[in-house]
């Protein structure tokens, strides 16, 4: 009997721990999404919403569905779309107050306390990866605004709460590769919740990391490559 194969999540977790031993400036976080393995279950979308208490109208990782061909030769592909964490991010260039910027480890972040809510970054993102927090709640208009919607959550290493119209209400919001989690040595939620194990995450500067080896010999796709934004999320198709 052959030994049981290690779950990809376990492999990525040890990759993550190895990366965290390096200084932040030597890490380069990236993601690979294997579209062939994505079943369109939306587990990543939902897990992310639950973790960050995302309100109506805010979504960090929608899964787009695309149909190809015509009957009877049709195929459907699922394209999860997190923030691309571009190396040449148009959202960062456009932000008038430097509230959004690229960290040295490659993650594009938003400083909620500086963001003025002008939505220039939403307009500038070619991937539609940013949504605007308009201060809505799922249970508004019902007899009771459910308490879970007003609970604390952690983003960018800080505890946040949307009570009393506080930021991030009125801010641009987007996927941040679960910065708080990875710094605590835990993989992003979309990775661990992915039922098809279609999402790979790790340090692109580590040649031994699964996120690098998984693309070898594969057909790698970069969304809107012609725009030269150099995304750090790529797809296997």
């Amino acid at each position: 009997m052959s030994p049981a194969k290690e779950d990809l999540v376990v492999t990525m977790l040890s990759d993550l721990k190895r990366a965290l031993r390096k200084p932040r400036s030597e890490r380069r976080w990236g993601m690979v999404i294997d579209k062939r393995k994505c079943t369109g279950c939306y587990a990543c979308t939902v897990a992310c919403i639950a973790e960050y208490k995302l309100p109506p109208g805010v979504v960090y990782r929608p899964v787009m569905e695309k149909e190809h061909g015509s009957y009877p030769n049709v195929t459907r592909e699922f394209i999860p779309r997190p923030c691309m964490h571009c190396d040449n991010p148009p959202c960062v260039k456009g932000c008038p107050v430097k509230a959004t910027y690229k960290r040295e480890d490659g993650i594009v972040v938003i400083d909620y306390d500086l963001c003025i809510g002008c939505r220039t970054c939403l307009v500038n993102c070619p991937y539609g990866a940013r949504t605007y927090d308009r201060g809505r709640f799922y249970t508004e208009g019902t007899p009771v605004l459910e308490a879970y919607e007003k609970e604390d959550f952690y983003e960018y290493g800080r505890r946040r709460n949307r009570k009393n119209n506080a930021s991030p209400i009125g801010n641009a919001r987007k996927c941040h590769f679960c910065t708080s989690r990875i710094e605590a040595g835990v993989l992003p939620l979309c990775v661990t919740s992915c039922l098809g194990r279609a999402t790979y995450f790790g340090d692109l500067n580590d040649p031994a990391a699964l996120v690098n080896s998984v693309v070898v010999g594969r057909n790698v796709e970069v969304l809107k490559e012609h725009l030269a934004t150099r995304p750090k999320v790529v797809y296997i198709s």
């Binding site: 456009g94 008038p96 107050v97 500086l114 003025i116 809510g117 927090d133």
Partner: peptide
């Protein structure tokens, strides 16, 4: 039109010269 109108002055205080 801003999400945080009172922070609008930030454009003068910490401008992004590339924008």
């Amino acid at each position: 039109d801003l999400g945080h109108p009172l922070r609008g002055m930030m454009i003068l205080v910490r401008p992004n010269v590339h924008a």
